[in-house]
Amino acid sequence: MSRAPSDASSGAPLLSVRSLAVAFGDTRVVDGVSFDVARGEVVALVGESGSGKTVTGLSLLDLVPEPGRRVAGEIVFEGRNVDALPERDLRRLRGGGIGFVFQEPGAALDPVRTIGSELIAVLRRHRGLSRAEARAEALSWLSRVALPDPEARMGDLPHRMSGGMRQRAMVALALAGGPALLVADEPTTALDVTIQAQILELLLRLRDELGLAVLLVTHDLGIVAEVADRALVMYAGEIVEEASVERLLGAPEHPYTKALLASSPDAAEGAERAKLPAIGGAVPEPGAWPRGCRFAPRCPSAFDRCTVEHPATITRPGGRVACFLAGEERS
């Protein structure tokens, strides 16, 4: 049942990112990131805190906050290079062609605007609806994201909503413009599992019915397993592994991916108050990335070569991995 991954069998991808680099001042935090997202595909972006997931997502539409900027790379959306778009088209793309669910809804929502008026504005701007149509549509979006009492919630300012309600409002805002691609940065972290399930169900339904593509940034491997077709693993600003979800969870190749899977807690097993396995050490700071493999200081399998030489990315159908060991196993 799974979709074909990136082997370009079905024409051009919806989104194509090539050699993306983003820097704050002189410090690169994202470095040489390339990936594709096809129509109707759910691609998960996972990786350690601070590895560059949010910055990668934001840079797709030049939303990286000052002094950050894209210093290299190319972003092609619906066959057009984003850099070549006039400002007007770029604005239309934000919230229209590409919807964003920001990681911290509390900070992303306008504190002095009701959620109803925000939604109505998006619907009028991107979908050209009349005020009355937009209002009806806004209400229906609030109920689709499982917000109880949508009528009453329309008039609520963000601070009057719970954390999870703000997150659902954010999802409604991102979807209301009718995007072809949804960039969802940790969209369900504030939701209990039953409501989380409803939001994921909604995304999958939009995927099936309208061909919505989703770039899903999440650290929840359970969610990745359940909804993603393909996963990208980021570490220290670069993609270290890409594979179908089955393969990534079943036979991870990169030592970082393996460590990530090993430290996943599960309520079904393990004792209470037991220490969880953590990956020793810390992610290197941007600007202090090791010369060789960036994971080398923490890698249990590191050997001499890893500290002096940066491993090249080995590509195979449907995936890739950047580790010397994976290369050796293959040859």
Binding site: V46, Q103, E186, P265, A278
Partner: peptide
């Protein structure tokens, strides 16, 4: 710990 990846979260 809702915004933390599994490893940092474990830590």
């Amino acid at each position: 710990v809702s915004a933390l990846d599994v490893s940092i979260r474990a830590q």
